[in-house]
Every structure is written in C-alpha cells, then in structure tokens.
Design a protein around this nucleic acid. Structure first.
Lengths: 148, 148
DNA sequence: CTGCTAATTGAGAATCATTCTCATCAAAGG
DNA sequence: CCTTTGATGAGAATGATTCTCAATTAGCAG
C-alpha cells in the first residue's frame, strides 16, 4: 500500500468514513494520472479499471481528496475545474498566458516561507496555496509587436 | 468623466469597439459597487439604472473589463464567478477559511515586487496576480480544538 | 455465519451560471 | 438620410456539477 493510500485511509477513519472499493480505485487512479486533471478525465480513467464506478462517486470523492490534502484546485477559469497533486509535489506558481493559454510553472518556496510566517502571526492554518499570474508570455508579446 | 471611463474608452477604441450606452452604464455601475461582486449582482444593479440592459450584455461586458485591466476574477470555487476592482486598488492576498468561509485580505506589495523581477527575466507581461491561501482561520481552529 | 444499521453507491434527473442564436437596433461616416 | 457593421435583448441551449432515491455494502454485534 502506497503512502497516499495510508494518508487517505487515516483521513477517512478520522472522519468516520469508509475506505470503500470505489474510493480506493479513484485514489489510485488519481495518482496514476498526470499532475493536472479534471473530473471527467478522472472518471474516464476510473472507468477503464472498473465500469461499476459512477460519475457521481467521482465527483463526491474529489472534495474528500482535497480536504485530505492530497490534491487541490489548479489553474482556474477554464470550463471544468482542474486539480493537481499536492502530496509529494512542491508548490509552484502558475504563469498563464491570456493569448495562447500556455501555462508555465515556477518554484515558490521563498514565497511559501513568507506566507508561513504571516500565517503564524494570524494563527491561520494553511492547507492550500495558489498563486496565479496572468498576462502575456514572451512568444505572444513578440507576435503582438510584430503585427503592429 | 472619471479616470476609469477614460481607460475603458481608450481600450475599446484600440480594439475598434464602441463605447455604447449599455457599456457606459455597466462600467459606472461596477465602480459604484463594492470591490467584490458577481455577474448577477452587477446585473441587478444595472437594471436599477435602466431596464433596457440585458443579462447577456452584462456577461459580455465583464470580459472586456477584465481585458482592459479594470477588474479581475476574485476568490474562486464559489458557485458564481466573483470579480474585484484592480484599478486603483493595491493587490492583496486572500486568506479563505474552509470552515466558515471568511476571507481575510493582506498586503502583498513585497511578493508583487519579487514576481515583477521574475517576470522581467521570463519576459512575461503581467496583467493579473491572484494569491489565495486556504485553510483554517484562528476562530475555527479554536472551535476545532475545543470540541475534541 | 447472520442480521442490523447507517453510510455509500449508481443512474439519471435537476440545477443553474454562463454562453449562444438570431432578429432587431444603433453608431459613424459618407 | 443611407449603409454597413458591430452591438443588443430575449430567450433557448449548454454543460459541469449536484441532487434524489432506491438498492447495495461495510462494519459490527450476536
């Protein structure tokens, strides 16, 4: 049993919820998937392993995974909500280009440290941090100036 | 005419769009509203000024205001998309409590400076910055420990 | 092993914010 | 006052997510 399975099971036990077969399947599928995914992609993958898991259960399990600290919502404002692993992945900022939609990720260890300090002062317990910068990437800036 | 009206008009002219009456109305309503609002609230307010503005036009104008740099999407993951003024408002981080839903705002001038530096290196042109921290506020942490 | 109880599930209907369609209207220049 | 093209209003359509409810399952007690 992998580490994230232990974590999820511990979380469920604490909440007096059951570590059922559908939940096990969804969990292992999430961690077999790319770091970024949406509910529908997850559902498709889960169905490959078992046709007996419904879309509703996938949608119901995602918030549990979020609350357990295993995943969090990722880049926003797309049609579907997207999620990303946070267990075992250092936090990173997302630089989203408004023009081409490309996403660049950069390290944010330093910023996280600053936020942790501020959290201590405010007595706030951090579960998720999302930093998103939108604008124009270098490619689209070049295209914009060329076409003038 | 206020400054944000000049900005919006300049933006529209540059895009070869017209500064029509509905757009003027929506713009002035946005800036008469709280810093945070959603499309429906905006629509309700606009309708108070004129019953001849449709929901569709409100929804169509919001992305223009975003692109013009006057507003941006705010705290996410609520049912409706919410927006906040950015023209004339220093950027701030949102600390969202998962338990009570409360939102605290803190300054992020320092972080913005760091991001500007990194943007210069990447040759990225920043239009929006959103920093959202989710977790438990001090009140809800206290409640949690009491009830154990 | 068997029954009990409450949580969980699957299937599909329901919701509801947002987007789209399309006929009508308005602005700006000639 | 035409003309052309973008803008608008009204309501239909979309589509991700949530809800409903009867059937199933897990965990426990006997």
């Amino acid at each position: 049993m992998q580490n994230h399975e232990h974590m999820f099971e511990a979380f469920l036990v604490k909440k007096e919820l059951k570590f059922t077969l559908p939940r096990k399947l969804i969990l292992s599928t999430v961690f077999a998937l790319h770091e970024h995914f949406d509910a529908e992609q997850l559902y498709d993958e889960v169905r490959k392993a078992s046709r007996n898991v419904s879309r509703a259960t996938v949608y119901r399990t995602i918030p549990l995974l979020v609350e357990a600290g295993l995943i969090q919502k990722s880049v926003r404002s797309e049609a579907r909500d997207t999620y990303e692993h946070i267990y075992g992945h250092p936090r990173h900022a997302h630089w989203v280009c408004r023009e081409c939609g490309g996403v660049l990720e950069t390290d944010m260890q330093e910023i996280c440290k600053q936020l942790q300090k501020r959290a201590a002062v405010q007595n706030f317990e951090i579960a998720e941090i999302s930093l998103e910068i939108k604008g124009l990437c270098w490619k689209c800036r070049n295209n914009a100036t060329e076409s003038q």
